[in-house]
Design a protein around this nucleic acid. Structure first.
Length: 885
RNA sequence: GCGGGUGUGGCGGAAUUGGCAGACGCGCUGGAUUUAGGUUCCAGUGGGGCAACCCGUACAGGUUCAAGUCCUGUCACCCGCACCA
């Protein structure tokens, strides 16, 4: 039973945190009572940006603030009475934990993805295979060398290009003033969102994960897990698999052909021009050869436009490169343009533009008056030439005698196959699968993260640090502020004695590098995701010193399918859950875990929102500036203006944030737990309404008075069991059990309330022992109440004289005969409207029910002597009499 | 723009499979207890109508003996993605 572990912020627990935690706590307690071994742990995701930002503004070291925040979170969580196994607690910042995060990274570093088996394998296997077969490899662009003839350096470079954790180059938003890389959303008009400092886009060499190698498996295995459809859809779209073709176009004056990716190879006859991304090497070469000043100006302008800006204005911009390619289907020469609507990061960074059947290409062709031709007759969409027509149809104008390609009359799918076969035959292209998913950028220019266990020699070659030297501890740094610089300088670079070391001191295998060799440590750190990628495994054996998880503990707790239930917010639907799946699959391939997927079942709890108020102009008013009037309307206190109540996210500015500590102080933890579970379905987002808490609070008081005489604190128990109460108790036990299993806590609580209302003694009752529950009934009732309100249940349990904790009591069994009624009341409908009610034996069959219904006085009066045309009887549900006409 | 989801009393919500719409809670109304307020207990509470009855699950249609639930279209809100070739 797993909760997404929290990032302990300085602000303390939010009412949203206990939502999911209470749900798993109830289910855990229930499962324990049912005799299961339950592992329900808690820990801390503690590396990351907020603590570092806080350190930059206040000068307090992140370790200090983080530890303080953890202590506060733990204190707060413990007040809720969550049954966590605190002996398994850890934080991602513990060196004993991040030692293994580093170890897993080294595992990826030392592995490659073998396409033949579609799985990760040790890179040593690749190396011995290359040596055994004396394979020919490319040692420089266009230079082929035999493995045996390669230098050690060349071999290493070749192997490096296969590692699952590798050094790659990515374009980042670098802000020199802030000394950091910014996310796309943090860049506005080429300046930083905070401070307005200039931001440049520059390539940066950083550690990457080859997650794209796993794209197909990450996609296919979504079918094996019991996860919300929305999340699986989001991951599917994130991976973004699309099938198409790679086509090579010959370019005038270029040795290399221009390769494009297209999902519509069938429209090749309609390709009237080509477009490459401004960053495309072809453009670089053209500029280097001294192309027009306009071209280099455009490229410079486009390069500094952030992705966000590009999205804002979809107006097409671009410029001709002056180069021409040959359309292999038509033999015609077509111009090559560059435009920023083509992204370097997707496909090959180049497209064949088919303006007749692609909206973007159409827009571009119109803006720059390029030719537009129709090559597909789309089903049901007439060709007007006024707009691109998209979708499947039949190829037209698609034949050329010289090239020998003929598609006319073919359906789209058939035409695609024909073009690919034709391309393959002439060596001009092939079938290709393309993913939207990119490799995972894993370096951050930050202090507060796991250091990479890797060092560099003077020439910049990298060497892994041996397992024995782990953890590579984060050096203490008095000043972890970012460095203002034109080139990225991570804060760790300031720890000079730590950075400058020797291979021996760092722990590099002496067979790789002599111990005395001076080396520098990697100064980037891992991103916040690292620690959360495998924490669930560590809980199985949190103290294990010999492995990241003890294999036996892993087999026992992870079982066949992984974590039985994982509860957390849907904001992690893609990244965290995709990354964790990727690490897990890697660990699986290399034999370190026994399940293909980490989480068998996933559930997203909804957001706890709050009320806010809105003026007529839609501006928001903080909660404490509004008062409610007697007629249920709301006005702004200062102006007297009428405002309307809306539901909004809790925020400091609206002053509608609820602090769990305050609620517990006023009503207690049980009330808090019960209220959050009673608000509505776990998966729904729902507004916190302080006024409603009174309802569940009253319920718990009523439970107390049901068992305890308030005047003297003595037990109040019924002498004899009331048959109706006993029947309802049995049904409640049954329903609560069922509802807990399907995480429907709101309806479980409603049935507990109903039971208590039914058993409550009326005030006028002379002898309290005439009402309420018997000792034995109270005993059973407390057991089903316990998962929801453990404190109250435990106290009453002790007062009943029971020994031991109610936590380990057994879930009560139910006499099945009490769940069924002897007789049932059925509505009788005439023409679909309820007109009468009849009472029939519970086991009555359709014929018997019909007889009783037709014999009923009220029914006969309604029929007025007529015979129904049709009688529909649904046993135990209803009767419907259908008359003529 | 594309994909997914949601729409039920004054409010949060219930209706597990097409079968009595509104369980349960809040709020509100009335009563009992109390010197009083609060608490507690009891009763009522979708709208209309004196009533029999009629209307009612975002809106408009449809399927069915029967629709909150299934189908078609529309609107509103929420979430995700977004020039992905």
């Amino acid at each position: 039973m797993l909760d997404m572990f929290p990032y302990p912020s300085g602000a303390g627990l939010h009412v949203g945190h206990p939502e999911g935690y209470t749900a798993t706590d109830i289910l855990s307690r229930y499962k324990v009572m049912r005799g299961f071994q339950v592992l329900h742990p808690m820990g801390w995701d503690a590396f990351g940006l907020p603590a570092e930002q806080y350190a930059i503004t206040t000068g307090v070291h992140p370790e200090v603030t983080t530890k303080k925040a953890i202590d506060n979170f733990r204190r707060q969580l413990q007040r809720f009475g969550f049954m966590y196994d605190w002996s398994r607690e850890f934080a991602t910042i513990d060196p004993d934990y991040y030692r293994w995060t580093q170890w897993i990274w080294l595992l990826a570093y030392g592995s490659w993805f073998d396409p033949a088996v579609q799985a990760a394998r040790p890179i040593a296997q690749l190396e011995s295979r290359l040596a055994a077969e004396d394979r020919i490899i490319e040692t420089a662009p266009g230079v082929q060398t035999r493995w045996s003839a390669c230098s050690r350096r060349q071999r290493q470079a070749h192997l490096d290009s296969f590692r699952l954790a590798y050094l790659g180059t990515q374009t980042v938003n670098w802000c020199a003033k802030l000394g950091t890389v910014l996310a796309n959303e943090e860049v506005i008009d080429g300046r930083s969102e905070r401070g307005g400092h200039p931001v440049v886009r520059m390539p940066l060499r950083q550690w990457m994960f080859r997650i794209t190698a796993y794209a197909d498996r990450l996609l296919a295995d979504l079918a094996r897990v019991d996860w919300p459809d929305s999340t699986r859809t989001m991951q599917t779209e994130w991976i973004g698999r699309s099938e198409g073709a790679e086509i090579r176009f010959v370019v005038d004056g270029e040795r290399e052909p221009l390769t494009v990716f297209t999902t519509r190879p069938d429209t090749i006859f309609g390709a009237t021009y080509m477009v490459v991304a401004p960053e495309h090497p072809l453009v670089q070469r053209a500029i280097a050869r001294g192309a027009s000043a306009d071209l280099s100006a455009y490229v410079a302008w486009a390069r500094n436009r952030s992705d966000v800006e590009r999205q804002e204005s979809k107006k097409k911009s671009g410029i001709a490169t002056g180069l021409c390619a040959v359309n292999p289907a038509t033999g015609q020469r077509i111009p090559i343009w560059t435009a920023d609507y083509v992204l370097m990061g997707y496909g090959t960074g180049a497209i064949m533009a088919v303006p007749g059947h692609d909206e973007r290409d159409f827009e571009f062709a119109q803006a720059f008056t390029l030719p537009i031709v129709q090559v597909v007759e789309i089903d049901g969409v007439p060709w007007t030439g006024e707009a691109a027509t998209t979708g499947d149809g039949t190829s037209v104008n698609s034949a050329d005698r010289t090239s020998g390609l003929q598609l006319n009359g073919m359906r789209t799918a058939e035409a695609k196959r024909a073009v690919i076969a034709w391309l393959e035959a002439r060596g001009a292209g092939s079938l290709r699968v393309q993913y939207r998913l990119r490799d995972w950028l894993f370096s951050r220019q930050r202090y507060w993260g796991e250091p990479f266990p890797v060092v560099f020699d003077a020439e910049g070659n990298h060497y892994p640090i041996g397992d024995g030297a782990l953890p590579v501890r984060l050096p203490p740094l008095a000043d972890s502020n970012p460095v203002e610089s034109d080139t990225p300088q991570p804060p760790l670079a300031k720890a000079r004695e730590w950075v400058m070391t020797t291979a021996g001191e760092a722990g590099v295998d002496p067979s790789l590098l002599p111990a005395s060799t001076p080396v520098t440590r990697e100064t980037n750190t891992m991103p916040g995701w690292a620690g959360s990628c495998w924490y669930y495994l560590r809980y199985c054996s949190p103290k294990c010193g010999s492995a990241f998880v003890d294999p036996e503990a892993e087999r026992y707790w992870m079982g066949k399918n992984g974590v039985d239930l994982y509860v957390g917010g849907s904001e992690h639907a893609v990244l965290h859950l995709l990354y964790a799946r990727f690490w897990h699959k890697m660990l699986f391939d290399l034999g370190h875990v026994g399940t293909v997927e980490p989480m068998a079942r996933l559930f997203h709890q909804g957001l706890v929102t709050s009320y806010a108020y809105q003026r007529a102009d839609r501006s928001l008013v903080p909660v404490d500036e509004v008062e409610e009037r007697g007629d249920g309307t709301f006005t702004e206190r200062a102006s007297g203006e009428r405002v309307v109540q809306i539901v909004a996210k809790m925020s400091k500015s609206l002053r509608n944030v609820v602090n769990p500590d305050d609620v517990i102080a006023e009503y207690g933890a049980d009330t808090f737990r019960l209220y959050e579970m009673y608000m509505g379905p776990l998966e729904a987002s729902k507004p916190w309404n302080t006024r409603d808490i009174a309802g569940v609070f009253r319920f718990l008081q009523r439970v107390w008075r049901l068992a305890i005489d308030e005047r003297d604190g003595s037990l109040l128990l019924a002498r004899t069991a009331n048959a109706d109460v006993e029947r309802q108790l049995a049904r409640t036990i049954h329903k609560v059990g069922q509802d807990i299993e399907r995480l429907a806590f709101n309806t479980a609580i409603a049935s507990l309330i109903e039971l208590v209302n039914a058993a409550t003694r009326p005030t006028e009752m002379k002898d309290p022992a005439d009402g309420g529950l018997t000792r034995e009934q109270m005993d059973r009732f407390l057991r089903v109440l316990a998962p929801f309100a453990p404190h109250l249940a435990e106290e009453l349990w002790k007062r009943l004289g029971e020994s031991g904790s109610i936590c380990v009591a057994h879930w009560p069994t139910v006499d099945a005969s009490l769940l069924e009624d002897q007789t049932v009341e059925l509505p009788v409908q005439v023409q679909g409207k309820v007109r009468a009610r009849i009472t029939v034996p519970a086991g009555a069959d359709a014929g018997e029910v019909e007889r009783i219904a037709l014999a009923d006085g009220k029914v006969r009066a309604l029929l007025g002597g007529k015979t129904p045309r049709k009688v529909i009887v649904v046993p135990r549900r209803m009767v419907n009499l259908v008359l003529e006409g």
